[in-house]
């Protein structure tokens, strides 16, 4: 749309100067990138928000008949070391159990998988967020400091009923949880 100004000759002092400025900026850009990487690595190590280490397989065809995801084993279990383990399944279009109950101030291990297609597992108001892929077990560890009641929507498109796939998570006071756990092997808050 407009004419070009006249060209300057290469290898003049201006070209050298331009190159210097350009190199300086490139160095700044590289430093920004390195800073970001170091920050991510340090945050990962110190905050312990790390992806799961182990790849664990499970056959979705036999979930309901054998193994750790049979129906009677789903829900929250108290472990000998005082932590709790939550086992859950996502399937079109609900979670089992639909309502997960866990205690405050306790290490909570989540183990979940899918019985059919890809689902998502997200506890609102927290950074607990994972995918449920049929064939694989997803694991995550958390510790809740305060009692909350959160939605747990499926966050991955899983078919026409996807919008109706909402579970619930209740974090209750540790003492109250222990009272509930006294006479039950697996806990849920499904009414």
């Amino acid at each position: 749309m407009t004419g070009d100004p006249p060209p300057s000759s290469p290898h003049d002092p201006g070209a050298e100067h331009a190159l210097r400025i350009e190199r300086r900026w490139a160095s700044v850009a590289v430093l920004i990138v390195i800073f970001l990487i170091v920050m991510a690595a340090v945050a990962g190590v110190h905050q312990a928000t790390m992806p799961q280490l182990k790849l664990e397989l499970v056959d979705p065809r036999t979930l309901h008949v054998s193994g750790e995801f049979i129906e009677s084993n789903l829900g929250t279990a108290v472990e000998p070391d005082g932590s709790v383990t939550v086992r859950a399944i996502g399937q079109q279009y609900s979670f089992v159990p639909q309502c997960i109950v866990v205690p405050t101030d306790t290490v909570v291990h989540f183990r979940a998988t899918s019985g059919d297609v890809v689902h998502g597992f997200l506890i609102d108001g927290t950074n607990l967020n994972t995918m449920l892929i049929p064939g694989f077990i997803s694991t995550a560890t958390a510790r809740f400091s305060t009692p909350i009641e959160s939605h747990m929507p499926c966050h991955e498109y899983c078919g026409v009923g996807h919008e109706g796939m909402w579970g619930k998570v209740k974090v209750i006071d540790k003492a109250a949880f222990e009272k509930l756990a006294a006479d039950r092997r697996r806990l849920t808050c499904v009414d």
Partner: peptide
């Protein structure tokens, strides 16, 4: 796939 179980950390 950060949140996927099929790729290692």
């Amino acid at each position: 796939l950060f949140m996927d179980p099929e790729v290692g950390s």
